[in-house]
């Protein structure tokens, strides 16, 4: 792939819609950028802002949160909470100087393999254009470890 910057992107997605949509992209043999790594939770409502921060801290250059379309959440309305948390998360990241294009929230259903592919490719290009995040050095001064320490 030459010297092109290859961003690393975390996808935090729900089991029922987006994960299944990504499965469909696979069964349909669609091709997309190999820069993404999916982490499955049961509902997008499970996506703790701490997961996003940790991904950036660890070295991810972008994070995609994805779940079922509003109204289609397998758990009735878990994704409403995701929706409500997202602006807060965006604001937090903005304060820490993380560009807006590095975090994205998308609704991708189990039948939208093509949408999954499009979003992943778009995001890969957008983050590629932003360049490496290298957040550890950028934000070390401002940020505590994570928002709260895990229960364990």
């Amino acid at each position: 792939m030459g010297d092109r910057f290859e961003p690393r992107i975390a996808v935090l997605c729900c089991n029922w819609c987006t994960y299944a949509g990504a499965d469909l992209a696979g069964t349909s043999r669609m091709k997309y950028a190999p820069n993404v790594r999916l982490v499955r939770v049961m509902c997008s409502g499970r996506v703790d802002p701490a997961f996003v921060l940790r991904a950036f801290q660890d070295g991810a250059d972008g994070v995609l949160i994805a779940g079922c379309h509003p109204g289609d959440c397998h758990y009735i309305n878990g994704n409403h909470k995701t929706m409500r948390r997202f602006p807060v998360l965006q604001r937090m990241l903005r304060q820490w100087g993380i560009e807006e294009g590095r975090i994205r929230l998308e609704w991708i259903s189990a039948s939208e393999g093509d949408v999954f592919v499009r979003v992943v490719n778009e995001m890969t290009e957008a983050v590629r254009a932003l360049g490496p995040l290298d957040w550890r050095t950028r934000a070390a001064m401002v940020v505590p470890e994570t928002t709260h320490s895990p229960a364990e």
């Binding site: 975390a10 982490v39 499970r46 895990p150 229960a151």
Partner: peptide, 16 residues
């Protein structure tokens, strides 16, 4: 089945 520690360990394994 999806504890903070479990999910964070996956994120670490992928990106750290």
């Amino acid at each position: 089945g999806f504890t903070d520690a479990q999910v964070l360990s996956q994120i670490d394994a992928l990106f750290a």
